[in-house]
Design a protein around this nucleic acid. Structure first.
Lengths: 348, 348
DNA sequence: CTGAAAGCGCTTACAG
DNA sequence: CTGAAAGCGCTTACAG
């Protein structure tokens, strides 16, 4: 038959009901797996669905039931492998719940984020997992409440009133500092980059407090380029600025870049200078020297945030919950005792 | 007012129309930016929408109009940075079209893929971008035609009847082989892993043909572990098997892993042995030695596949189109003249 | 456990 | 350019 006719003849729940000899309401109950329907009735309906090639129409269901089985996920960036892992955790949990992820990328700008949040809302998502763009104002929370839309914050938080899943970044910095201080390092720099947000602040603050707690100077915080490709070149200036014997990195992207840059300068990482990364991405174990890093388990954070959202959709009145996972120090070969690191002064 | 009431009082197009003093149809035309509406009428309606906090209900629109402004994207894997880049390209184009991405992860199994394709269909997506799970049968195409659902294949193809966006993998292998042969290498191995699909076959075939074209033996194809963390350990066996002076890698993940494994064996990559990667991910330039690699531009492929899908949604009767991008050789420091590579025999 | 009726919020012809 | 009516496919009470 012609295409027109095929389109017209889309099979509906009524068709299924008629073929099965039941009412539309009963067919609807079968689709939704209600226990109210008897076994043989259910079987007849299911057979009819199969025979007719019935496709459930979420759109129609959503219109009546105010439930879309879709959640929005707003990330600031897709190419950073860290966010890909986060997304992977989110997707797995949402998928298991029989729901679907609407993915949007804010590019870390609040304007785009605003447009995209509206778009998600128009699409009727049941809730949103938000890794807020840098600069997002806490005022957004009021808007979200007005919208009556469940939201959980992930990795970055902007308000105590909203659920949050993240890692204990300050504790992670403490682990990094203590590890290096225990190895005898005193001149420790912190290499950072990227936009400023809660996770940034917590790391900066964590670094400062941990350094001071060990009686060390905490003012060696140095920004390196945001562009991955340019990070290696930043190694030189970083040294000339403060002559560190050890460097803690804001993330593993920086660590990998500086590892290259230091080697370009003729320095042996893990001998002349120690390097500690942050995030512990898969790669940390397969670069040389193997990278000592603080793991923040992005997949787990993704799973946590998805579970928080599912709970909140189910029970909107729940008080805000924060799941903050401890970080873990993975010692590998890029960090070593300070005595061995003195060789760095050759580099000047 | 209580929450119940707020929910009830969801503002609809009718509310907007009444406040603006027009009919619902007119308000609908304004929402859809129809040119049929006069400027001052439009202004009145828009003002009413703003005043009332109107939110367009895609679900209702879709029910009537059979258009969801959402496309499904099926990937086999999210944690591989390569797919994240692909996704990034797709998302950018779909976003620019005012549409939204439904993201699902098949885990590279056809069973999951089947479930997820159905789910996307129930959600009423306007089309699907499919990076088919390994083992997907060409029979799926008939199902897709029955479903009347626009689909474009990306990175991997299973049928000539469907649109496809990818890279010329065979040509890429030729570039890699020619580059190494030009440097005087004759004992060249090909390190592969992962599931078997069209892109896999094309690379294997491309390697074999290119080697034979240069009069070289093409049987040194060696599988390394799929698990990234285990790749470095595979370097030793790889050598004992065939004593290559150069290795071409199926992708950069393998190249980075072997780079580490070779260095663990005391071999200098780019001197004792040459290494050529495939994909040219960002990282290729920031590991040491810098990795010679064949770029396949995943972001561009993502953009291409999204554009193909948008075109097909607009014009379903278009003949199938294939966009196959040329690859590019990026020579860096991991590949060098063969004479320098003889030192490898020390490793035995 | 099942049926008849109403309605979710929009768009689509069809008149004017 | 605008209005009144019908209907997309489902679910929700309400009776039985």
């Amino acid at each position: 038959m012609p295409v027109e006719d095929r389109k017209k003849s889309r099979v509906t729940l009524l068709d299924v009901a008629q073929r099965a000899g039941v009412s539309r309401a009963t067919a609807s109950l079968v689709v939704r797996k209600s226990p109210l329907v008897g076994a043989q009735t259910r079987a007849r309906v299911e057979e009819a669905m199969a025979a007719l090639g019935y496709v459930y129409n979420m759109g129609a269901a959503r219109l009546r039931a105010e439930r879309s089985n879709a959640v929005g996920v707003v990330v600031p960036n897709l190419t950073n492998p860290f966010f890909a892992e986060l997304l992977s955790g989110i997707e797995a949990v949402i998928d298991r719940a029989g729901m679907v992820v609407l993915l949007v990328n804010s590019g870390d700008t609040v304007e785009r984020q605003d447009v995209l949040m509206r778009r998600l809302r128009e699409h009727g998502v049941d809730g949103i997992i938000l890794c807020a763009a840098a600069g997002t104002q806490a005022g957004i929370v009021q808007q979200l409440l007005d919208w009556d839309l469940p939201v959980v914050q992930t990795l970055r938080h902007i308000s105590p009133e909203l659920d949050y899943a993240g890692a204990d970044y300050a504790a992670g910095m403490r682990q990094a500092v203590d590890h290096l201080a225990d190895l005898g390092h005193t001149a420790i720099s912190f290499a950072v980059h990227g936009p400023v947000h809660s996770a940034y602040d917590e790391r900066i603050k964590g670094f400062g407090e941990a350094m001071r707690a060990r009686g060390l100077k905490s003012d060696h915080v140095i920004r390196v380029p945001d562009q991955t490709a340019q990070i290696p070149q930043a190694a030189k200036a970083l040294f000339e600025a403060s002559r560190p014997t050890a460097i803690i990195c804001f993330n593993d992207v920086i660590a990998v870049g500086l590892n290259a840059g230091l080697s370009d300068l003729g320095l042996k990482v893990g001998k002349d200078v120690s390097l500690v990364g942050f995030d512990d991405v898969t790669e940390a174990d397969i670069i040389r020297p193997r990278l000592t890093s603080i793991s923040t388990a992005p997949v787990t954070i993704g799973e946590d945030s998805a579970r928080l959202l599912l709970d909140r959709i189910r029970e909107p009145q729940l008080p805000p919950r924060w799941i903050i996972k401890p970080t873990q120090l993975h010692v590998r070969h890029s960090s070593a005792a300070a005595a061995l690191s003195l060789g760095i002064h050759k580099a000047g």
